[in-house]
């Protein structure tokens, strides 16, 4: 389908971008455009103004603190995440997941900010950022504010970014000693829609001290599964214990069924990907892409 006619602006600074967003009611920031343009082409949403932020240098940097903490500009592309020495060193799973999103052309254009702000429940990065305990930095005319990734996603295509605001960066704290991330997906094909995803962050020392397990695609927003997290705490860091904990995922999930998977299948797959993500985090299980 074709885009409806829409105005386009390319501000030179974040301040100008904010002003354009604040002054125009039906305006939205355009970063890589890999999701937003398709949403507009399908005429699911309609806009008056696209504010192109993709070339704002202020949003394109990756800064690494000595402790391994990262501040990633909202317009950093998937490919840049994948190839950044800082990201690879501090958060190898983030680089790995970004490096397996769709195809190279999309990875050259799609951005971390866009992936989060579109808040499609099948998107790759939101569950991982929640698991890693990331903080989302939002600029507005009143100055910047910070929102935990776990509070950032509000629903299908809805986030904490309000009208006239702009996500400017994502802060990812350093991995604690003994902590490691895992990620697992069941998808339709090698580079297609996800049916169930899970991201995990596990701190273990033979025994699991703390675990975050975030499920995606089974509800409108990525959500930690308290029951499985609780069942993991204090248990041996081994597959059998993880599998037992994953059994806690059950009737509490009410996923939607669609052409790609029934509700029952998604619920079963949520258990599988949660188990696999945690196993991967504790070093039992190969990479799980999709």
């Amino acid at each position: 389908m074709l885009l409806e006619s829409v105005a386009y602006a390319r501000p030179d600074t974040v301040a100008e971008a904010l002003q354009l967003l604040a002054e125009n009611e039906d305006a939205a920031p355009l970063a890589g455009g890999q999701s937003l343009i398709n949403v507009l082409k399908h005429r699911v949403a309609s806009l008056e103004l696209l504010v192109d932020i993709s070339r704002l240098e202020e949003l394109r940097g990756i800064a690494a603190a000595p402790d391994g903490g990262l501040e990633i500009g909202a317009c950093v592309t998937y490919d840049e995440l994948d190839h950044s020495p800082e990201v690879r060193s501090a958060q190898p799973m983030l680089a790995d997941v970004a490096g397996h999103i769709e195809d190279q052309q999309i990875r050259d254009a799609g951005t971390i900010g866009g992936n989060c702000c579109l808040s499609d429940p099948t998107n790759n990065l939101p569950p991982l950022l929640v698991a890693l305990g990331a903080t989302m930095v939002i600029a507005s005319s009143g100055g910047p504010r910070e929102v935990a990734a776990s509070d950032f996603f509000h629903g299908y295509f809805a986030t904490a970014v309000g009208e006239g605001e702009l996500l400017t960066s994502v802060r990812v704290p350093p991995l604690a000693a003994g902590a490691s991330a895992g990620y697992s997906t069941v998808a339709v094909g090698a580079d297609s829609k996800a049916i169930a995803r899970a991201a995990a962050l596990v701190r273990a020392n033979g025994t699991i001290e703390e675990a975050r397990v975030v499920l995606a695609c089974v509800s409108p927003i990525p959500a930690r599964h308290a029951g499985m997290e609780e069942a993991l705490r204090g248990r041996a860091a081994e597959p059998a214990a993880v599998a037992a904990a994953a059994e806690r995922i059950g009737a509490d999930l009410e996923p939607l069924g669609d052409a790609h998977g029934s509700a029952e299948y998604r619920r079963a797959m949520a258990r599988v990907v949660a188990r696999r993500a945690v196993c991967q985090a504790i070093g039992n299980g190969g990479p799980q892409h999709g």
């Binding site: 398709n38 339709v188 094909g189 090698a190 580079d191 829609k193 052409a259 790609h260």
Partner: peptide
């Protein structure tokens, strides 16, 4: 029709 675009109709790719 539930698969009216390549979002939902997964045509095989080289990766598959």
């Amino acid at each position: 029709l539930q698969q009216a675009s390549f979002y939902d109709y997964h045509a095989i790719t080289a990766l598959d």
